[in-house]
Design a protein around this nucleic acid. Sequence first.
DNA 1: ATCTTATTGTGATTAGAGGCACATGCGTGC
DNA 2: GCACGCATGTGCCTCTAATCACAATAAGAT
Lengths: 209, 209
Amino acid sequence: MKFLKIPAATITRLSLYTRALETLIKEQVTVVSSKRLAELCGVNPAQIRKDLAYFGQFGVRGVGYYVKELLFDIKKILGLHREWKLAIVGVGNLGCALVAHENFTRQGYRFVAAFDADPMKIGRKLVTGLLINPPNEMHNICRDKQVEMGVICTPAEFAQDIANRLVDAGVKAILNFAPTQIQAPDGIKVENVDFSVKLDNLAYYLTTG
Amino acid sequence: MKFLKIPAATITRLSLYTRALETLIKEQVTVVSSKRLAELCGVNPAQIRKDLAYFGQFGVRGVGYYVKELLFDIKKILGLHREWKLAIVGVGNLGCALVAHENFTRQGYRFVAAFDADPMKIGRKLVTGLLINPPNEMHNICRDKQVEMGVICTPAEFAQDIANRLVDAGVKAILNFAPTQIQAPDGIKVENVDFSVKLDNLAYYLTTG
DNA sequence: ATCTTATTGTGATTAGAGGCACATGCGTGC
DNA sequence: GCACGCATGTGCCTCTAATCACAATAAGAT
Ligand SMILES: NC(=O)c1ccc[n+]([C@@H]2O[C@H](COP(=O)([O-])OP(=O)(O)OC[C@H]3O[C@@H](n4cnc5c(N)ncnc54)[C@H](O)[C@@H]3O)[C@@H](O)[C@H]2O)c1
Ligand SMILES: NC(=O)c1ccc[n+]([C@@H]2O[C@H](COP(=O)([O-])OP(=O)(O)OC[C@H]3O[C@@H](n4cnc5c(N)ncnc54)[C@H](O)[C@@H]3O)[C@@H](O)[C@H]2O)c1
């Protein structure tokens, strides 16, 4: 089961499992069955076992999974055992909320650079103390600070340009909040977070059922 | 092709298509082929045709789709030909960004009520002029204003309780930004927006992929 | 009026993900 | 030390979604 292609949905679920496991740790639960974990995550127990099987054997037959160990193992699989350096581009309403969000820091995501085109904002500092830089310094600063992921929070029409610059600056993964499809070269991973698509789903559901 | 069960992924793509079509309208393009539209949306052309086929025939063979008409038709399918009334619960960093976001309004999503537990916030008004109410008035106000969708922007530990109240207040669809799995009765649609899961995907990709 | 060209709409095919069910194997109790 | 119970790990099946490939068909050229 080692060298199969792993479904993207599996990775997304692993992320969900870590959350449930963290909750269990808070509740001082030490062992959990796939059945119980499945309930917490709203998935099928076999699904959990199969997801984990892609990466090895983590459970004990007849017993279940040791919560702490499993959490550690999944975090390692996902690459969450280390810190990740992020840059944010566009510190408007949404961008500021993201930078201020302390959960990200707790999970190992650290904003080490911020950029904005607004002359009123350049040179100022965010609440976290992070300095806002002009976009033309993206290349140097990102390389300097070894930024690995970029977060795009500008209006949609600038998103592609920003993405190009980020890639040029050595950034290998992009989280895009602008409501537009970004093109990126092979080897660069782009994820989109799209609120209005979700709202549209709700609207469809309420309309048609 | 009329009474089949429609994949959720189809609905999500329809939403994407509307965006591309809106861009095309801005560029004064009047006709588009599934091939061109597919490029803009990053999907397979046959996928587009099949997605549309669930709902009828919208194109002209040998020609393509009339942009304006198709946009109109898809919006109607999604239920975006009308206004939707939303309530937001938790007007912190993220919640404020959402309410302030003018794209939503342009698309027909209108926040008609806001709730927060913080006594310092209750009674104040948001930048849009929307009054912040205490959570215990959720029932009355939501029924009064005929709120159809609820948006949860509180810390995770309160999300389930808020969801229950929203359901109790007659809300039929929930957009949840808190990083937790919400249980809702049948007939209530819940969508989750989950930034950190997306970041975890990127981390996995950079680690392994 | 007929032929050509372009692109849709869709049946057939392929790929993939999810779930079932059972054999495997660990821990506990006798 | 042996047997039993229980939850994992996994082969196999099912179901769904995506893609292919072509027949149907509209517009425009001849
Ligand atoms: N706020 C929301 O709730 C929300 C919801 C869904 C999607 N979005 C999307 O997220 C993005 C940001 O939204 P927002 O509400 O924060 O908008 P905003 O207008 O508050 O902030 C945008 C920021 O980007 C900066 N900017 C503009 N062009 C730039 C450039 N070329 N380089 C660097 N910075 C630039 C602006 O100066 C501003 O600070 C938009 O694409 C929006 O559609 C936002
Ligand atoms: N800010 C982000 O970028 C971000 C990113 C990912 C996820 N989230 C999630 O979104 C949610 C909100 O994030 P935020 O950054 O806006 O947090 P925040 O602390 O800025 O805002 C939370 C708000 O909820 C209110 N609140 C608390 N309990 C409440 C209750 N029982 N009823 C009504 N209101 C209540 C608080 O008074 C506060 O105003 C959190 O669950 C967070 O994990 C936020």
